[in-house]
Structures are given as structure tokens and as C-alpha cells.
């Protein structure tokens, strides 16, 4: 591959890692440092591709790599694209963590057939002394098991739905109940872990509704059953639409944070450490 542009920032360690990888692989690229001479070029690039570039509360994460056909942001997603092209799509995204921590690693997100390549990229990240936060919603438990077996996971996070049917509808991918339960069991073995359920809108009978407290209770109960513990870290999260207009929302009004308290009260029957996310 050739013709890459790397948007970087002065002093960005993650940018150096990606550039180092490209240098080692003999990949040619043009670097645009947004804090130096590349500032104007980045502004034009950002303005033209705003929807594809994640901007978190602390600004845009670097590096950003593009070859003119695809844009990848964040050290994990960039390395994955450089290593295997689109084959690893879904496994990595731009993260929100800084310093030694890297998130945006989705064990359930990609094609399991590309699992070995996914593992190779995760090893690459770990080899750069990053601490890794790996998330899942239940798909690809075999990949999660390999990650854990190789001590590649520092923190595991699982989005939990009690039933495969509900999870499939929400995440847009069919998955098996046994995979959810196996993933729950695996996540609980990570050095640090937490379970969470986001109270998302669900389409039902042509109408949208939020997950009910009963569905969250069922998730909490599943955790208790599989892990044989009522003391798992369990966060009930507030749904925040990613796009200005989320089609799943329909006519639903945003759920206030206080509404999660009732979910928490009920979930605590099965997970005593359940907490509700704040606004």
C-alpha cells in the first residue's frame, strides 16, 4: 500500500508508534502535524470529513491515517488498517482514554474469521506497553478467551443483555445465548472488569421504547447465575445518541439520568454493586 497521509500532533507518542510501524513495513506516507505546518491541511481535511472523525470531550484523537479511500483514527484502528486493511473493520475504533491506556478494542465487533490478525494487532499494541481495555457484547467469545489467555487484556468491559434475541436486535448481529454466557464468564476472569447495560431504545412493533427495568434486572440476574456472584461491578448506563438524529429513538424523549435509579434499585436484587450512570 502507498499514498498514506498521517495526521499527527507534535509530541504524540501514538503517532510515533504508527509512523514507526509504517517505516518498519516500508510504507510511504506524508505527515501533517496539526500543531505545526500541517495545521491548515488538517483543518481542511477535518472540515471535509467531520462525520468520520471522532471528537471527544478533550478534542480529536491522533493519529489519523487515510489513504484516500478510508479514514482510520486512533492507534488501534490505524495499526489494524495498516496491517490488514478492511479485514479488521469492527474490531477497533477511536478511543477516549489517554496516556498508557488504549480503549476502542471490540472483541465482538469484527469478523471472527480474521481473529488471528486481530490478535496480532492487539499484541502489537501490548508490545508498545499500552494497557488495554477490551470490550464485548458477547460475540466471538473464542477471541476473548485467547486475548485473556495471552494476558493481553487489562480491563474487560461487557455490555450485557439477558437474551440473545434482544442483544441481536440491539447490536445488529445475530448471536447465541451460549456465547453471551461464555463471554460473561470470561470477562469475570479479567484482571479488572465491569459489566454494563445501556438503557437503549429498542424497536418493537413499529415503535421505539427503552429497555425496561425488567430487562435490566434480567441482565443482572444472568450475571449472578453465570458468575455465581452478586458482587460484580455493574453499571447501568444512560443512552446518548451518537448521531444528531438517531433513528432508533423515533419519537422517544431522551431518558433523564434520574430514571436510571429505578433500574438500579431493581437490579440490586441480583447485583448489589449496581450503579447508575450520572448525567
Amino acid at each position: 500500500m502507498s499514498g498514506f497521509t498521517v495526521y499527527s500532533a507534535t509530541g504524540c507518542v501514538r503517532c510515533k508508534i504508527v509512523k514507526g510501524y509504517m517505516d518498519a513495513q516500508g510504507m510511504t506516507y506524508v505527515e501533517k502535524d496539526m500543531k505545526a505546518e500541517g495545521k491548515e491541511d488538517f483543518q481542511k481535511f477535518y472540515a471535509a470529513n467531520r462525520r468520520q472523525i471522532f471528537r471527544g470531550p478533550e478534542g480529536v484523537e491522533f493519529p489519523i491515517v487515510t489513504d484516500g479511500t478510508a479514514i482510520r483514527q486512533g492507534v488501534g484502528a490505524c495499526l489494524a488498517y495498516l496491517y490488514a486493511g478492511r479485514e479488521l473493520d469492527g474490531f477497533f475504533s477511536a478511543g477516549t482514554l489517554h496516556k498508557e491506556w488504549v480503549d476502542g478494542i471490540h472483541a465482538a465487533g469484527g469478523n471472527p474469521a480474521a481473529g488471528e490478525k486481530f490478535l496480532a494487532v492487539v499484541r502489537l499494541l501490548k508490545g508498545n506497553n499500552f494497557k488495554l481495555v477490551v470490550d464485548t457484547y458477547g460475540r466471538n467469545p473464542a477471541l476473548l478467551e485467547k486475548l485473556l489467555a495471552e494476558n493481553l487484556v487489562d480491563v474487560a468491559v461487557m455490555e450485557v443483555m439477558a437474551s440473545a434475541g434482544l442483544a441481536g436486535a440491539i447490536f445488529g448481529q445475530p448471536l447465541a445465548q451460549e456465547d453471551i454466557e461464555r463471554s460473561v464468564a470470561l470477562v469475570a476472569t479479567a484482571p479488572e472488569y465491569r459489566f454494563q447495560t445501556t438503557v437503549v431504545p429498542v424497536a418493537e412493533g413499529g415503535q421505539a421504547r427503552y429497555l425496561t427495568p425488567q430487562e435490566v434486572v434480567a441482565a443482572a440476574k444472568l450475571l449472578a447465575t453465570v458468575t455465581r456472584s452478586k458482587k460484580n461491578p455493574y453499571l447501568i448506563k444512560l443512552y446518548r445518541p451518537v448521531q444528531p438524529k438517531d433513528e432508533r429513538l423515533g419519537e422517544l424523549a431522551p431518558l433523564p439520568a434520574a430514571a436510571l435509579l429505578a433500574y438500579r434499585s431493581q437490579a440490586r436484587a441480583y447485583q448489589v454493586l449496581a450503579e447508575a450512570e450520572k448525567e
Partner: peptide, 9 residues
């Protein structure tokens, strides 16, 4: 009934 419906920290 014992449900927490408001919390301030």
C-alpha cells in the same frame, strides 16, 4: 416501596 428515585451527591 423502597425504590430510590432521586439522588444528589
Amino acid at each position: 416501596g423502597g425504590d430510590i428515585v432521586w439522588e444528589w451527591t
